[in-house]
Amino acid sequence: MIPTVLIISFVVFFIIQLPPGDYVSSYIAKMSAEGEIFTQEMIDEMRAEYGLDRPWYIQYFYWMMDILFHGDFGYSFSYLRPVWDVIMDRLGLTIAVSLITMAFTYLVSLPIGIYSANHQYSVGDYLFTFIGFLGMAAPNFLLAIILMYASYVWTGTPYIGLFSQEMLQNGIHLYNFGEFLKRLIIPVIVIGTSGTCGVIRTVRAQMLDEQSKQYTLTARAKGVSERKITYKYCLRAAINPVVSGLSNSLSSIFTGSTISAIVMNLAIQGPVLYTALKNQDMYLAGTILLVQAVLIVIGTLLSDIALGLLDPRIRFEQQKED
């Protein structure tokens, strides 16, 4: 695991510095467009200050050393603050939004998937399939704009962002928590629907597959009720791919969605990564990507452990290897 993470960090850093130019050049381009004039000395001075005049592998080496021995992930050029502070700023909210979205996704898609499988080719099945595909195919930002517009027309309040003006001034308290939850509805629906259809299809296909299995027939032949067959026999086996799908969600919990977040003005991690990449704010972008990679590795480990707990056959093979 540790070598994997080290290699990933190396590749991440290599790729981030690949595009021509660096933070200084994109900063200067931006400022020049606004009419500022820079001399070559000023530019070189800035480079030296940020340590960008050294070759990239030296930069990588110092970056890694700082991370490993000082827990220092570098400095964000555009925020003018340590990278870790910038990330921590938005971490809580990102996790909150992501977790609620994930809960929404599974709460909606698991029952629908089971229903669709039990009533294959029924009107309900077709209806959910249609809605699900619509949710998957429609671009999220479009859905976001439509819902924001609709909410404005119906309620008269523009639900943009997670906080109202009043919350930004006074902070979130019990009395305005309801308002905060209300503002969560649209982002959760928008971000959640894209994943929902995928999970519905997975669950439906898995459940159908399980229903034609011999052991389902055996269970039926010994007098087990249809309800118990669905939940105890089919779902138990069908849940595996859903659990392995969870391994990726840890890292998406950390970042949240990007484009929808920009459209809906959500203060979560996704847009930060986006602007950091755009401005070549390399330590910030590198750190976010690195954390994502680490989380994917951890997520995979966790889902493997979960699968081992769920499925005796996997457990068995592990014991044999020991």
Binding site: K213, Q214, Y215, L217, T218, A219, R220, A221, K222, G223, V224, S225, Y233, R236, A237, L310, D311, P312, R313
Partner: peptide, 23 residues
């Protein structure tokens, strides 16, 4: 019918390897 199944009349199958739930 579920009272009949397994209690009064029961069935064994061709492929025992897949007749049990693996978990």
């Amino acid at each position: 019918i579920r009272k009949i199944r397994g209690e009064r009349a029961s069935m064994i199958f061709q492929e025992p390897m897949v007749a049990f739930h693996p978990m």
